[in-house]
C-alpha cells in the first residue's frame, strides 16, 4: 500500500503506476455534475484543488454542533464528467481524481499531459470512507448546488483506493478489458457460426 499525501506535486503522482493500491491523506474536495457544469460555463473551481484530489462523491453530510459531520462518502460514477474533465484538470491543477468506473481517453490524455492520476475508490464502501474524514474544513456552493453536489473540503486520513489510470498512460481498466475480451472470445467460440460483426 502506497501512501499519498495531499497536496502533492507532479513528481509524486508521476511515480504512481496503474495497479498501485494507495492510501490518501490530506486535502480531498468533492465535486460532481453541478461543479463541472459551473466550471464549463465560466465559473471558478475551488483554488484549493491545485495539487489536491477531486472526489466524485455526493456525501451524506449531517449538521454537528456548529460544523458538519460526513455520514457516508462513497464514490459516484465518473463517466458523466468526461466531457468537462480535460479542461477541468488543466484549469485547476488537480493531481488526483477519485471516482468509480474510470474515464475516457480524452480525459486520460489530459491526465498524462498535466500529471494527474485516477484512483478507483471502493464503490459502496461509504461507511468506511466517511470514517476516514477527520475534519470538514469548509464547504463551497452549499446553497446553489445543494448538499450532495456541494464542494466539501475534507481532511482525510487513510482513504483507500487503487490507481486505475496513471499519469504515464497506464490503465488498469484497459488492461483488464483487453484480457477479459480475449477470454470472452474463447468462451464463446463455436457458440454460433452466424455471429455478425
Amino acid at each position: 500500500m502506497k501512501i499519498l499525501r495531499l497536496p502533492c506535486d507532479e513528481r509524486d503522482v508521476r511515480s504512481l503506476k496503474a495497479g498501485d493500491a494507495v492510501e490518501i491523506h490530506g486535502l480531498v474536495v468533492t465535486g460532481r455534475d453541478a461543479l463541472h457544469k459551473f466550471f464549463a460555463d465560466g465559473g471558478a473551481a475551488p483554488r484549493e484543488l491545485k495539487g489536491a484530489a477531486l472526489y466524485h462523491c455526493g456525501p451524506v453530510a449531517v449538521r454537528d454542533g456548529g460544523g458538519w459531520r460526513i455520514a457516508a462518502a462513497g464514490p459516484t460514477t465518473s463517466v458523466r464528467e468526461n466531457v468537462y474533465e480535460p479542461r477541468f484538470i488543466a484549469g485547476t491543477g488537480v493531481r488526483v481524481i477519485i471516482g468509480k468506473g474510470g474515464m475516457d481517453d480524452a480525459t486520460h490524455e489530459a491526465m498524462k499531459r498535466c500529471g494527474c492520476v485516477y484512483v478507483q475508490a471502493v464503490g459502496g464502501a461509504a461507511a468506511l470512507a466517511a470514517s476516514c474524514v477527520k475534519k470538514v474544513l469548509k464547504v463551497d456552493h452549499l446553497d446553489d448546488f445543494g448538499a450532495a453536489e456541494a464542494c466539501w473540503h475534507l481532511d482525510v486520513a487513510g482513504l483507500r483506493g487503487v490507481v486505475a489510470m496513471d499519469a504515464n498512460g497506464g490503465s488498469l481498466f484497459r488492461e483488464v478489458r483487453t484480457k477479459s475480451a480475449a477470454r470472452m472470445a474463447r468462451l464463446l467460440k463455436g457458440a454460433a457460426a452466424w455471429k455478425n460483426s
Binding site: 457516508a72 459502496g124 468506511l128
Partner: peptide, 23 residues
C-alpha cells in the same frame, strides 16, 4: 485490497447501525 475494504466497511456499518452504502 478491495474485498478487505468491503468487509471492513460492513463491520463498521453493522457496529454503528449506519447505512453500509450511501445509495
Amino acid at each position: 485490497v478491495v474485498i478487505s475494504t468491503i468487509l471492513e466497511n460492513c463491520a463498521l456499518a453493522e457496529k454503528g447501525k449506519t447505512p453500509l452504502c450511501q445509495d
